[in-house]
Amino acid sequence: MITDENNHVRRVLITEEAMEVIDTLRKRFGTDLMFHQSGGCCDGSSPMCFEKGDFIVGSNDIWMGKVYGCDFFMNEDQFEYWKHTQLTLDVTPGRGSSFSLEIPMGVRFMIRSRLFTMEELENLIPTKTGEEILEENV
């Protein structure tokens, strides 16, 4: 069970390979990054990586925690169908087709999922809305 400093079970984990890509992007853009999980066709159902603040989140987005220092968001409607699963941010060779920052590197962030156990479900990181996160960051 991987927990945060408050002993809450993390909703989003990350692989070593994905951390390396984040390190490279942080260096290249000289800024913090954020993720927003997409839905829908083509490059959908994949996580999108942006410079922090580039994608405007709001009261209908759910903050699922930080992953390797990056805020990770998902739209509330989508979260309803995903919340019983733990996500792992991974990376794979590929092209993507969106504005996600890693695409020119020839790799694409992707999500692997597993079901939370009953025990874990009772001790998950509390979520916040995108709006609450923006207020905290002010």
Binding site: G44, S46, M48, F50, F55
Partner: peptide, 13 residues
């Protein structure tokens, strides 16, 4: 645009 929801929102932004 034809694609997915996050990029759709970004383009609308």
């Amino acid at each position: 645009f034809t694609g997915e929801t996050t990029t759709g929102r970004l383009i609308m932004q």
